[in-house]
């Protein structure tokens, strides 16, 4: 068996390196609509990459299909822009086989909460070490205005022209209800500093960090978050020394709820909402939950060692 040995020739030992600026992490010019909340999320993510000085070749962004899923194309890292709803299985396969990579999964509400729901639920349970960002604009934007699972009841769209028939799915309570859940936070595109701090906390969490970003779609759901943007009173900020600390947001929002992110029961209660206000902050964090990528990690063997092992297998079947 070989231990965690490396050679001086390994890419990450002998690679050139210098301090990387935000521009070094930027790729193509984003083609989202002006005013789209995805711009803000991208900015915060680039800031995170810069502040952590993540190696670009060691970072992978996976996405599904939708406006939000163009995200990887705007970053100078590796990326996998795959199928609608299926960012998480790909991200899981990457992290399980390459624990040295930093893995991010970017999803929209259709991706995560509708067509890819099974993967979402199980990814939370696997608790594979990665950041999963849900850019939730409450609508299908790329395909032009169809109701999504998180569309507010009564909101009119091209597919439900009399207004959405059902109450919206709550991604926070859903995630908090899943066994082995280890990190759940909510932030919003219009508070970039809070968004950055949330991503930072998610990145440093060991395990599956689920971040829901309330994201404005200026074209189809312009009004949905308007109350929260215009009237800070409609936002409640979860604060705690162990939570997400952002002086900007703390200054802007007067409604503070002191919430210890270790308290799952209270996190679920707060995630329910119910008073019409948007709650931002860290709902839950438990870094002690088992991580599937570590549970399944195995030592590596050389070709010759494998042959020896396989020959022993063949002995069992010898006649």
């Amino acid at each position: 068996m070989s231990g965690p040995e490396y050679s001086l020739l390994d890419g990450d030992v002998c690679a050139d390196e210098r301090h990387l600026a935000i521009e070094d992490y930027s790729s193509a010019v984003p083609r989202w609509c002006p005013g789209c909340g995805d711009h803000s999320a991208l900015g915060a993510m680039q800031r995170l990459l810069e502040s952590e000085q993540l190696k670009r070749e060691k970072t992978v962004f996976c996405s599904g299909i939708g406006c939000s899923s163009r995200f990887p194309h705007y970053l100078k890292t590796y990326g996998f822009h795959g199928l609608h709803g299926r960012a998480l299985p790909v991200a899981t396969g990457i992290k399980m086989t390459r624990p040295d990579l930093h893995v991010f999964a970017i999803m929209g509400d259709g991706d995560c909460c509708s067509i890819g729901l099974a993967h979402w639920l199980h990814a939370v349970r696997y608790n594979v070490d990665m950041v999963a960002m849900l850019l939730d604009n409450n609508i299908y934007g790329l395909t032009k205005n169809q109701t999504s699972p998180t569309t507010p009841q009564g909101h009119k769209s091209n597919t439900q022209q009399q207004g959405s028939f059902l109450p919206p799915l709550n991604p926070l309570t859903a995630t908090l209800g899943i066994t082995n859940c280890s990190f759940v936070a909510q932030t919003a595109d219009w508070v970039p500093a809070h968004l950055f701090q949330t991503l930072k906390a998610a990145f440093h969490h060991q395990g599956f960090a689920f971040v829901r970003v309330l994201q404005r779609c200026p074209v189809f759901t312009a009004g949905i978050y308007q109350d929260a943007v215009r009237h800070p009173d409609n936002v409640e900020l979860l604060t705690h020394p162990a939570g997400i600390c952002d002086p900007d947001a703390e200054g802007l929002y007067k409604n503070h709820i002191s919430h210890d992110p270790a308290d799952l029961h209270e996190a679920r209660r707060l995630a329910e909402g119910g008073n019409g206000k948007f709650r931002l902050g860290l709902f839950f964090r438990d870094a002690s939950r088992p991580r599937y990528n570590e549970t399944r990690a195995l030592p590596k063997y050389t070709a010759e060692e494998k042959i020896e092992i396989l020959n022993a297998e063949l002995d069992r079947y010898a006649v």
Partner: peptide, 9 residues
């Protein structure tokens, strides 16, 4: 050992 691996590489 990293040096030795490099020699082998």
């Amino acid at each position: 050992s990293a040096l030795a691996s490099a020699v082998e590489d």
